[in-house]
């Protein structure tokens, strides 16, 4: 935590009409840190992600990324700065092949997005796409249409797309939801093996994954940050148990 934070939120709030989805959140994430954001459904985690990624403008406060204020920067510009994210619903391009999906992710941060001609350089991008598919263990399905894949495979493609852009900051929104036990195991290993230079923000309901991967945990409830600490501190925190872990376990 000694380094200058790579992501800094100050007083970030987001309202939807009368609903305060996120209220006055301050957050500092150091470069290379693994941060989990936890909280019950409706706590404001995904809204916070959307504000950080630029998919939603904040109602108040500001967002700093890589040392600069990006509050007014559109999502696509933040992406080119080195921010990548996945979505709860995978939001993939169902009419395109797995390789094309990943290719588009890389193309998005490499320029030439509007080029109507195919150049030799595309081959290199496709090689990188296939490589990223390998890292997410989806390289067996490269030519398949994403629309014909299973839910778990969609998660793998989404992850491959996020990794393929070689982001500095990677935000994963519930990457394990809907995955089988084996697939979760695979995902955990993958996250643990992630390049230590990458800053990871993770929303995850699966405590085993979240607490195995994260170095620090931010606990949200009702749009606010209520606790922040190491996984051990979070496990020990009574409030957390009451609000989240307890109810979570009874849910199961």
């Amino acid at each position: 935590m000694s380094a200058e934070p790579i992501l800094r939120l100050r007083g970030v709030g987001r309202r939807f009409g009368g609903l305060h989805a996120v209220r006055a959140v301050d957050l500092d994430v150091a470069p290379g840190e693994r941060r989990a954001i936890l909280g019950p459904n409706g706590a404001g985690k995904t809204t916070l992600f959307n504000v950080i990624a630029g998919d939603l403008p904040p109602s108040s406060g500001h967002v700093e990324l890589f040392g600069g204020d990006v509050t007014l920067l559109p999502a696509r510009r933040r992406a080119t700065l080195g921010l990548a994210r996945t979505y709860q619903q995978s939001r993939l391009f169902l009419g395109l092949s797995v390789e094309d999906n990943i290719y588009l992710a890389i193309r998005g941060v490499s320029g030439g997005r509007l080029r109507p001609v195919i150049l030799p350089g595309d081959r290199e991008l496709r090689r990188r796409a296939r490589q990223a598919a390998g890292r997410a263990a989806i390289d067996g399905k490269l030519p398949e249409l994403v629309g014909s894949l299973s839910h778990g495979e969609h998660r793998q493609v989404a992850l491959a797309m996020a990794l393929a852009t070689e982001p500095t900051v990677l935000m994963l929104d519930e990457p394990a939801s809907g995955l089988s036990r084996g697939e979760r195991q695979l995902l955990t290993e993958l996250l643990l093996a992630l390049d230590p230079a990458i800053t990871l923000l993770l929303i995850e309901h699966d405590m085993d994954i979240a607490l195995a991967v994260a170095e620090r945990v931010t606990m949200m409830h009702d749009g606010r940050v209520i606790v922040e600490g190491t996984p051990a501190e979070i496990r020990a925190n009574e409030l957390v148990h009451e609000l989240y872990l307890g109810s979570r376990y009874t849910d199961e």
Binding site: L104, R107, G108, V109, L114
Partner: peptide, 19 residues
């Protein structure tokens, strides 16, 4: 690239924006 990205826009405009 233009055409592939257009198909991406067709399927998931929000995702394309965050890419």
């Amino acid at each position: 690239p233009f055409g592939l990205a257009l198909q991406g826009v067709r399927d998931e405009p929000v995702r394309m924006s965050s890419l």
